[in-house]
Design a binder for these strands. Structure first.
Length: 318
DNA sequence: AACACGGGGTT
DNA sequence: AACCCAGTGTT
């Protein structure tokens, strides 16, 4: 039929964003430790949780160590929470490690070790939200769903020049990207979207010249891709200042204290410090808050950088 | 909708 | 020094 031939011709010529993206992904496929042809759900789960708010560079060596120590979910379930938290040390968001351990025990005990295999079931796990449930479902089980993270929000906002304020308008992105998911390669599509956002469609100075979607991108056409996604003005977070105390005894041991069980870094050890206020305190106020008073405190001038590192000046952290 | 939760990066 | 980045859970 002539009509069919015309349609075929058109589909061949028309720009197909999904095909174009998957071709780009296949050409640039990065070999990462958590990439496999037949991904182990446990591996995908661990990598996705570890990658929450954490860079690939930071995750790569830690992921390898973690799997070496606990190669499967049974092994993780048998580990002590303390060991898991120590293995997680330095990665931040320690609730992730607690949830991981809790999930492992639950799955091994209640479900005979059978890993939840649908987006819906995955979402019930503590520490697995919208993004991670969709990511595991697509990558490990081939379910045609689309994880939406910051990368995907950025890529889709630019593709369609969405004026919705993000992340409030995340639903619009979710619907749009879900329509794009190819039935045959949902996992590759998910990873390709995130790679595109991480490598090409970056928050600042996006590399539009090498983007597989350049000709389709509305924001690019408008000449200001970087201004997407639209965002609400952020609240001011004032810097807070404090002093950390470094106290050693004759054998060189350093004084630590344990934080409250609830709240930030609950139950973990820290250096004694003053309150954290928006204005630097007087030396009298600092001395009053010192853990011991019958010593002569010396201000560390040389290693001040180290002190700053310990103090973590970032206002919203302390 | 706003905030808490740690770590990293760029300007 | 100031700013940006951004999943999950709680409120």
């Amino acid at each position: 039929m002539l009509k069919q031939a015309m349609e075929l011709l058109q589909t061949e010529k028309a720009f197909n964003p999904v095909i174009t993206l998957l071709d780009w992904y296949d050409l640039n496929r990065r070999e990462l430790p958590w990439r496999h042809a037949q991904p182990d759900p446990y591996h995908v789960w661990l990598s996705e949780v570890m990658l929450q708010q954490t860079t690939v560079v930071a995750v790569t060596p830690r992921y390898a160590r973690f799997l070496e120590r606990w190669p499967d979910i049974q092994a993780l379930a048998e580990a002590s929470l303390d060991d898991v938290l120590h293995e997680w040390q330095g990665l931040g968001y320690y609730a992730r490690a607690r949830n991981l351990h809790c999930c492992a025990q639950h799955i091994v005990a209640q479900d005979e070790g059978r890993f939840p295999d649908t987006e819906k079931a995955l979402h019930d796990l503590p520490g697995v939200g919208d993004y991670t449930a969709a990511a595991i479902a697509a990558i490990a089980f081939g379910e045609p769903v689309a994880p939406v993270d910051g990368n995907v929000i950025r890529v889709i906002s630019r593709l369609d020049a969405l004026e919705q304020i993000m992340p409030t308008g995340k639903q619009v992105v979710q619907k749009r990207v879900t329509r794009l998911v190819p039935e045959d390669r949902p996992g590759d599509f998910a990873q390709a979207m995130m790679d595109l956002g991480a490598i090409v469609c970056t928050p600042r100075n996006p590399k539009c010249e090498i983007c597989p979607w350049e000709e389709a991108c509305k924001a690019r056409a408008g000449g200001d891709a970087q201004s997407y996604p639209r965002k609400a003005p952020k609240k001011h977070k004032p810097t807070r200042y404090g002093v950390v105390f470094w106290l050693t005894d004759r054998s060189g041991r350093v004084m630590l204290r344990r934080r409250e069980e609830k709240g930030l870094l609950g139950g973990m050890m820290e250096f004694p410090s003053t309150e954290w206020l928006e204005q630097a305190q007087s030396s009298e106020d600092v001395a009053f808050q010192a853990p011991v008073s019958d010593v002569v405190w010396k201000e560390l001038v040389g290693p001040k950088k180290a002190l700053e590192a310990i103090a973590i000046k970032d206002s919203h952290l302390f």
